[in-house]
Structure formats: C-alpha cells, structure tokens
Amino acid sequence: MIVVSTNRSATEKALHRYASRFFAGLPRNGSSLHLKSPRSVSKNFILELRSRTGVPVFFFGHGLNPPAIGFLGDDGKPALDAKNMALLTRRKVAATCCHGDRVGSVARRNRFSVFGYKGLYWVPKSSRHVTDCEAAALAGPSIIAQGGSPAQAALAAEREYRRLAQLLYSRNRVGDRAFASFVAINATTAGAW
C-alpha cells in the first residue's frame, strides 16, 4: 500500500497526523510505504506508483481545485494530475482531501476506483476537534486497507461522520455545535466512484 501525506499548512498537518496513525496501523510486512514531507512530491509519487503496481493508494492532503484533477504535493505543485491518472489503473484510491469526485470523474476511463469526498472536505483547526475527527477521517481508508470496496468505505465514513456530528451536537462544548454541522457535511459528501 502507498500512503501519501503532505505537511505544509495547518490543514495538511492535521491530515498528516491521520496518515501517520493510519500507516502505523497497517501490517508490518514491508509491502507498505508512507511517502511523507518533504518527499511527497510528484517525482517520488510517480516513482512509487510505477514500482508498486496495483496496490491501493491513500492520499491525505489537498486536492487540486477544479477544473484541475488530482492531488497537491508537498512542494505546492501537483503531485498527481490529469496527465498521469493512468498510473492509478487497477487500484483502489482513498482520497482524504477536497474534490475527490474530480478524481472519481476519470476513474472509470482509467480503470481504477475511488473513495473520497465530493467538493470541499472540512478539517478542523482546534487540536480538540482534530482529535475528535480522527476515527471518522480514518473510517473509509481503513475499509480499503482491509480489502473493502470504495462504496463500503464511503458508507463507513458517512456513518462515522454522522455519529461524530451527533456526539458533538450533544456534547455542546464551545464551538461543538458549529463544528458539528461541518462534520455532518463531510458525512453527506463521502462517496465512491
């Protein structure tokens, strides 16, 4: 499995934390790799995709803004974009970033499948909420890591974000109710392509 995370902005730092936890939970059999800052740039990503064909890819970071398609690297340049989507052929992709649906729009043509989020994917800033969101952020990728389909991953992510939104709403500490609505949006945008 290939896990990729970037670590520049505060948002990326939160997602990098999730990626590190996720990678730590993968079986230690030498078949998985965590490509992280500062190595998570296009050249290295492409190299790993070429040398590890068919294995699932887990991306944690920023998605490219439409009309572009793909993922942003640690150097602020596209790490993977429309020109090299064919490198994802015969893989399951878990896109923990914005605009996963854009990557999904070219999935069938390039014979891969994607779990991700339609449009914007909201990430908290406060460390308390970053911790609260970890299980929900990793619910989808964990299903893919266990051999599940992107559709199953999307259902798991939706369920976990929905559960978290209700928990935050009931807990009602400072900022919880406002943040619960963003969490609930993530539940509604989780999808598979």
């Binding site: 948002t11 970033c97 994917y121």
Partner: peptide, 14 residues
C-alpha cells in the same frame, strides 16, 4: 477571526 475550519483544497479556504 482566527481560523476555525479549513477545506482540504489547494489554497485551503479557511
């Protein structure tokens, strides 16, 4: 006025 949430997109809407 400090960031509360951000979107995981290039430019990171805060």
């Amino acid at each position: 006025d400090a960031p509360f949430v951000t979107a995981a997109a290039k430019g990171g809407k805060e």
